[in-house]
Simulated assay, not measured.
Amino acid sequence: MSMPVHHLIASGPRPVAPFSHAVEVDGWVFVTGQMPTDPEAPDAPLPQGIEAQTERVIENLKVVLGGIGLGLENVTMARIYLTQFERDYAALNALWPSFFEAGKLPARTTVGVTALAVGALVEIDLVARRP
């Protein structure tokens, strides 16, 4: 087994805690949960609503993956955290397939939580695999 490689993507979102954007070992990439902050304006207000926040989180995940030469097509597993599970779960499910090629959705777990950093409604972390 090779040693882990820790990635901090210069163009990526500003970390809200002490972590690497991603850690890679033996072709597996573990992407830290991303928030709906704007990498170009990290102190700007968050987008309003679950759809807009989810889209921003996915864009941030794409920046992190792209920074190491990967994309959403390399994602094998996603974990989604929602602060308003009962209210937002259906809207999230309606939007989720639009981010991936038809018939190629990653495995997924969605969890309701009491709170997230920066007052976000949603956070998503990923596991990806290099081809």
Rank of each mutant, 00 (worst) to 15 (best):
M1R: 12
M1Y: 07
S2N: 13
M3Q: 11
V5I: 14
H6Q: 02
H7M: 00
S11N: 13
G12P: 03
R14G: 03
P15E: 09
P18I: 00
S20N: 12
H21R: 09
E24F: 06
V25E: 14
D26C: 10
W28F: 09
V31R: 09
V31I: 15
G33L: 01
Q34Y: 09
Q34E: 14
M35W: 04
A41N: 12
A41Q: 13
P42H: 10
D43Y: 04
D43T: 13
L46V: 04
L46H: 01
P47F: 09
G49C: 12
G49W: 09
G49V: 07
E51F: 02
A52H: 08
Q53D: 03
E55A: 08
R56L: 07
R56E: 03
E59Q: 13
N60W: 07
L61T: 04
K62I: 03
V63E: 04
I68F: 10
I68G: 04
I68T: 07
I68Q: 12
G71S: 15
L72H: 11
E73V: 00
V75S: 06
T76Y: 02
T76I: 13
R79D: 08
I80L: 13
I80P: 01
Y81H: 12
L82A: 00
L82E: 02
T83P: 01
E86Y: 05
D88H: 03
Y89N: 10
Y89K: 07
L95H: 05
L95E: 08
W96E: 06
P97H: 10
S98H: 15
F100S: 07
E101P: 01
A102Y: 08
G103T: 11
K104Y: 00
K104H: 15
P106K: 07
V111I: 14
V111E: 14
G112P: 05
G112T: 09
V113K: 12
V113M: 02
T114F: 04
A115V: 03
L116T: 05
A117D: 13
A117K: 08
A117R: 12
V118S: 05
G119R: 11
G119C: 03
A120C: 05
L121M: 08
V122S: 07
V122F: 05
V122R: 09
E123L: 06
I124W: 12
D125G: 15
L126P: 01
V127P: 00
V127S: 12
V127H: 10
R129P: 01
R129Q: 13
R130A: 02
R130Y: 08
P131I: 04
P131C: 10
